[in-house]
Nucleic acid binder design. Sequence first.
DNA 1: TGAAAGTATGGTCAAATGACCTTGTTTAGC
DNA 2: GCTAAACAAGGTCATTTGACCATACTTTCA
Lengths: 192, 192
Amino acid sequence: MLTEFEKYLAAQDCLTNEAIRRISSLAIPRTLRRNEFILRTGEICRHKIFIVKGLLRTFNTTVEGNEHILQFSPELTWTLDVESYDQQVPSRFSIDAIETSNILLWHRNDFNRLLAEIPAFKQLADQIIVRNVYRSRQRMLTILSATPEEKYADFIQSHPNFRSRLPLRMIAAYLGISLKTLTRIRHAQLQR
Amino acid sequence: MLTEFEKYLAAQDCLTNEAIRRISSLAIPRTLRRNEFILRTGEICRHKIFIVKGLLRTFNTTVEGNEHILQFSPELTWTLDVESYDQQVPSRFSIDAIETSNILLWHRNDFNRLLAEIPAFKQLADQIIVRNVYRSRQRMLTILSATPEEKYADFIQSHPNFRSRLPLRMIAAYLGISLKTLTRIRHAQLQR
DNA sequence: TGAAAGTATGGTCAAATGACCTTGTTTAGC
DNA sequence: GCTAAACAAGGTCATTTGACCATACTTTCA
């Protein structure tokens, strides 16, 4: 599990082997079963999370019971509830596993120490945040301007491999459309 | 114009007077008239922008001519197209002035130099980015889960002073609903 | 392997929404 | 201060969307 992570870090091409080992040394491996939570609404997010294998989702459930998905986190990506983690405040989102997943955790103190110790790691972390900002702006624009059909097309194009890993209702919950609308779109596409 | 900016920085309470003067010294003041652009789709974003007075908007126009607003930037906030600025790539968004505005600009090289020279400034910049991430997550959730009426209520509550500064059609373009829907909501509210 | 839970699809219907057009009012800027 | 442009709101109508329900199929895991 750690080797995959170390390969990932090495591929970023900005860290010494020593730094990579140091970062790994503070990671806590953990396995999540399908549907298992790593963070629940109201809890405080105490870890940075790296997904080695599997698929997590960040979502919110309204009082009426509707789920809305903010983010899917597949293997070789990071996740957490930023606000809860940074400010140690109750989280507004939940994170759970869609597939059985292997993840790595770092305690906040440990992670902050690493950022302070290893400037190149801090740079990498900054880069990751900034790339998330790009993507989230792009998604915002799509949600605002695209029709349901375009949203789905866009999703399939940006995440081709997700299609087979996710139930449609989750794709609908991510796109902000109803399952009914999504099946209608797919039905229409089959006609062509 | 610079004094207001220096007051803003001083209020952040993390920079020495010397640092504040240094940062100001590299700023380029500029005035934008109503409807004047500071960045157009396709151009490269070459500056960090601080709004001293006035109101800017970041938006995108679809091929059909529909405008979608990603962000309003009132006085004492920062703006830019992150992706275009960071990677010096053509911008997908435009930024223009809704009100006559006084802004400050920094060239990328100058700004990067400041970040490197003044660690506390880098920290402040990181903080601002992260706060933007919080807000954008929250907005994403609202767009995904709220009804048009809730979106409008949420907007008025979060930005009470914007109501009088923005034409309704811009609020609609920000919320991702049609002007018609927005006027209907307002009409219904008057009935009560 | 078999029962239970989860999933995709379809039907029907009511409600919400947007497109288009008109009108009266307000605002901006010379 | 005046004129042209921008704006809010209303009417109408077609379309889209979601809620609710039933059904058939698939997956999971005990």
